[in-house]
Design a protein around this nucleic acid. Structure first.
Lengths: 175, 175
DNA sequence: TCTTTTAAGACAACATGTTGCTATATAGCC
DNA sequence: GGCTATATAGCAACATGTTGTCTTAAAAGA
């Protein structure tokens, strides 16, 4: 058995840790650059990467009647408290409207305004598609699909880890 | 020629835009979850995902003698101003030391303290390796290498876009 | 050498993210 | 119907990210 085979047979082969280390460092850099370059792509419309994500969520067919703040927070994977601040700025800028839910007085329904929809469709979307083209310039359809697949797997595993971490403290109380 | 072939021949095929849309949305979610689950992984050591990145950078062989604040900001792809705050908190917590550069009085040199190095090696690294294992549980070595390759390509394109955006305003002045 | 450019630090303003806490409204169980 | 658990909103504290502006120190060019 060669040294490499021995490493692969072991529980935590050095090569895999080294690869994982690079992967997460690049993912960290990518997160920083996404916020920076994404916000710059739509700054002329007074938007940011995060506000772009909100408008993208609300522009879906499924969200035509609006979304509750809680549902939107879960969809974007941010905290409700953070989303509240984001939404208040977007409401201030006239992109969205927040109205109390008539059926459930606890929650509020978020929807795009006509002005927000026009800004999104006519101004932001062309900029966003140009942004996609520039970042994915050397990606084939197959490359893009593969990258998407890997992101989904990582995301699933992060969500599972997040979910167990959220329930574990209760188990700790049982000690 | 089929409809699909026609789309692929066109400048911006619908399928690619749709894939790009999903990819960037998942990347956005991934960025949020990386900060959340990464910080949780090292919270017992008083660290965050960002501080983990700083210690990771300083623990490299190349950075044994410390790094200037500017070099560290470029390496992590964050702004100098942001890094300054991060470093002051890490200095307050005793993980790093910041000393003036004797050769260049403009800059300051950042290095790990002995305590920071011990925390990193003995406490943080085992947690981080366990984190890697949980997130990349169903990734083969090949999967990990492919994902890393895609991240690098996206990062290169983001950096190019960032660089041109930073120089374009000067061109605007020439108008 | 002196002037101009460049790089770094410091400070402010703002957007985005987290957790923790409290109050309130709905829903579910007895 | 009334307790209890759950979901939501609102507030505060803090960490992390951006840009812009000002000052100062080093480097580069006339």
């Amino acid at each position: 058995m060669t040294a490499t085979e021995e490493k692969i047979r072991a529980g935590a082969p050095v090569a895999k840790i080294e690869l994982a280390n690079r992967l997460f460092f690049r993912l960290y850099q990518c997160a920083n650059m996404l916020h920076k370059t994404g916000s710059r792509a739509v700054e002329a419309e007074g938007l940011t990467t995060q506000q772009w994500a909100v408008l993208g969520a609300l522009s879906r067919k499924k969200a035509e009647g609006g979304m509750s703040v809680g549902d939107l927070a879960r969809y974007l994977m941010v905290s409700r408290q953070n989303l509240a601040g984001l939404l208040s700025r977007m409401e201030r800028d006239g992109h969205i409207a927040v109205a109390p839910d008539t059926r459930d007085r606890r929650s509020r329904i978020v929807a795009m305004t006509d002005a927000g929809r026009a800004t999104w469709r006519d101004l932001a979307l062309p900029k966003i598609h140009a942004y996609y083209d520039q970042i994915l310039v050397d990606f084939s359809i197959s490359d893009t699909a593969h990258m998407l697949h890997y992101l989904l797997k990582i995301l699933e595993n992060m969500q599972r880890l997040d979910a167990t971490a959220a329930t574990d403290p209760i188990a700790d109380d049982a000690d």
